[in-house]
């Protein structure tokens, strides 16, 4: 299975999927920390992938989404955004709406 398929599987098998640097308990980048903290405010389970542990995924995810940076958040298979967009959506209450619409909260 090539890296693209591996990524597709991880994203499709996890309703909330966060590609980040480090882990939610030990984030290794401020932007990754910000997004994982935002998710934690909703008290929901989410799957995180530490891209620092696997260079193939770290580069493959950028090709997969045509998005050059980490973190990257996916909700029910759909790319929602990186830190700026997720933060902006959160501050405007839009993220809660999307989570509700996708019956994730």
């Amino acid at each position: 299975m090539n890296i693209n398929e591996q990524i597709k599987n991880v994203i499709s098998q996890n309703d909330i999927c966060l590609f980040m640097k480090g882990t939610p308990e030990a984030p290794k980048c401020g932007f990754s920390l910000a997004v994982s903290n935002i998710l934690k405010t909703f008290n929901i389970k989410f799957h995180s992938v530490d891209v620092l542990a696997n260079d193939e995924i770290r580069n493959g995810i950028k090709v997969y989404s045509d998005w050059p940076t980490i973190p990257q958040l996916y909700l029910k298979g759909e790319f929602v955004g990186g830190c700026d967009i997720v933060k902006e959506m959160f501050e405007k209450g839009e993220l809660k709406e999307v989570l509700k619409k996708k019956s994730l909260i």
Binding site: K62, W67, P68, T69, F79, G81, G82, D84, I85, M89
Partner: peptide, 27 residues
């Protein structure tokens, strides 16, 4: 959409985003 807008900016940076340029907080 916001994603499209940000992608347009990244395209304008001709591959530098995430390489020569580590972080660009975008509004």
């Amino acid at each position: 959409t916001k994603i499209e807008q940000h992608k347009m900016v990244y395209k304008a940076l001709k591959g530098k985003m995430g390489n020569e340029l580590h972080a660009l907080q975008l509004e």
